[in-house]
Lab assay of single mutants.
Amino acid sequence: EPSQADLDALLSAVRDNRLSIEQAVTLLTPSSGGGSGGGSMDAKEILTRFKDGGLDRAAAQALLAGRTPA
């Protein structure tokens, strides 16, 4: 399960175009075949909204942490 520091680094990389959204989703869902963790939004949607400015960093982190299976 990614830590808050991992999520923060991942969000920074996506925002700075050092990591594509697809690459980030793969890192967030290493063994689930890329499927959502059952959250209301999947990781790709969360990351896309964050990059487009629709979500701030704290909200994106909380959503990603919340949808990651324990």
Results as ranks from 00 to 15, higher is better:
25 V>W: 04
34 G>C: 12
2 P>K: 12
64 L>H: 01
18 R>M: 09
15 R>D: 04
54 G>M: 13
55 L>G: 01
23 Q>R: 08
70 A>V: 12
66 G>F: 10
37 G>I: 14
12 S>F: 05
21 I>K: 01
32 S>K: 09
49 R>I: 05
20 S>Q: 03
15 R>A: 12
46 I>S: 01
20 S>E: 03
30 P>F: 14
60 A>Y: 01
66 G>I: 10
65 A>T: 08
6 D>R: 07
56 D>L: 05
63 L>I: 04
60 A>P: 00
60 A>G: 01
34 G>E: 11
50 F>P: 00
6 D>K: 09
67 R>Q: 10
53 G>T: 02
69 P>I: 15
62 A>S: 11
26 T>N: 13
41 M>L: 09
44 K>L: 08
10 L>H: 01
48 T>C: 06
9 A>L: 09
29 T>F: 14
34 G>N: 12
62 A>C: 14
50 F>K: 00
8 D>M: 10
44 K>W: 14
39 G>N: 10
24 A>M: 03
27 L>E: 03
59 A>Q: 15
17 N>D: 07
46 I>N: 01
67 R>K: 08
50 F>T: 00
43 A>V: 12
47 L>S: 00
9 A>G: 06
45 E>T: 10
8 D>T: 07
38 G>P: 12
29 T>E: 08
15 R>P: 00
43 A>M: 12
12 S>P: 01
27 L>K: 05
19 L>F: 04
5 A>I: 15
25 V>S: 04
64 L>Q: 01
27 L>Q: 05
34 G>W: 04
32 S>W: 09
44 K>I: 08
44 K>F: 15
33 G>D: 11
1 E>V: 11
32 S>D: 13
7 L>Q: 02
21 I>V: 07
24 A>I: 02
8 D>S: 09
50 F>W: 15
65 A>N: 08
11 L>N: 00
51 K>R: 11
23 Q>E: 14
21 I>E: 01
37 G>D: 07
38 G>H: 12
42 D>K: 11
67 R>L: 06
57 R>N: 05
66 G>A: 10
55 L>K: 01
70 A>D: 14
55 L>W: 02
23 Q>I: 07
45 E>C: 12
64 L>P: 00
69 P>G: 09
61 Q>Y: 13
33 G>H: 13
1 E>Q: 12
63 L>W: 03
52 D>G: 10
62 A>Q: 11
36 S>H: 12
11 L>E: 01
57 R>V: 06
23 Q>S: 07
62 A>W: 04
26 T>H: 14
59 A>C: 13
7 L>I: 11
68 T>N: 10
19 L>Q: 02
34 G>Q: 09
28 L>Y: 03
43 A>K: 05
11 L>I: 03
44 K>Y: 13
33 G>E: 09
9 A>K: 08
19 L>A: 02
32 S>M: 13
11 L>W: 03
12 S>T: 12
31 S>W: 14
56 D>H: 04
65 A>M: 15
42 D>N: 10
31 S>C: 15
14 V>W: 02
52 D>M: 14
22 E>Q: 05
7 L>E: 02
23 Q>F: 07
46 I>W: 02
5 A>Q: 12
19 L>T: 03
14 V>K: 00
38 G>A: 14
7 L>N: 03
25 V>M: 07
30 P>G: 15
41 M>D: 05
62 A>F: 04
9 A>D: 10
25 V>K: 02
16 D>S: 08
60 A>M: 02
14 V>I: 10
32 S>G: 12
31 S>I: 14
17 N>K: 08
60 A>F: 02
56 D>S: 10
5 A>N: 14
16 D>W: 04
70 A>F: 02
20 S>N: 04
26 T>A: 15
68 T>V: 08
49 R>L: 14
